[in-house]
């Protein structure tokens, strides 16, 4: 795993939390692909975040308590004819961490356009 200062967020983690908070404002949980699509939308034609990068970062944020996750009910997924999704939500701690990180972020690196 990446070694860094305690409490510091990587750019991709900031983007995940920022996008996740938007989902939360809409009253929604989010899953991996929806998150990748939402992050790609704000990035001037950049592609979707790579699988490994995305799920590693999600796991790291969940381990730190910045996200919570749960597996979708298998019956719901089956009724829609797709694999079940892992659904995430940004926690209060995650929101605070993002605010803190945004406060420490240089002005030229806004949350929506930070590089991966």
């Amino acid at each position: 795993m990446v070694r860094r200062r305690a409490g510091a967020l990587l750019p991709i983690e900031e983007r995940i939390l920022a996008a996740g908070i938007e989902f939360g404002r809409a009253g929604e949980e989010f899953h991996g692909f929806a998150l990748a699509a939402a992050m790609a939308d704000g990035q001037d034609g950049r592609g979707l975040t790579a699988h490994g990068t995305l799920y590693k970062a999600l796991g790291r944020l969940a381990d730190q308590g910045l996200l919570t996750s749960r597996w979708e009910d298998a019956e719901v997924a089956a009724s829609e004819g797709r694999p079940r999704r892992r659904l995430y939500r940004v926690t209060g701690v995650g929101e605070v961490a993002l605010r803190r990180a945004a406060g420490a972020t240089p002005a030229h690196r806004s949350l929506g356009t930070a590089p991966a």
């Binding site: 899953h31 991996g32 692909f33 699988h51 799920y55 797709r82 694999p83 079940r84 892992r86």
Partner: peptide
Amino acid sequence: DELASDLHDHRTD
């Protein structure tokens, strides 16, 4: 499972 779901959602999208 998470990757399979992503691949499926990506294809559907």
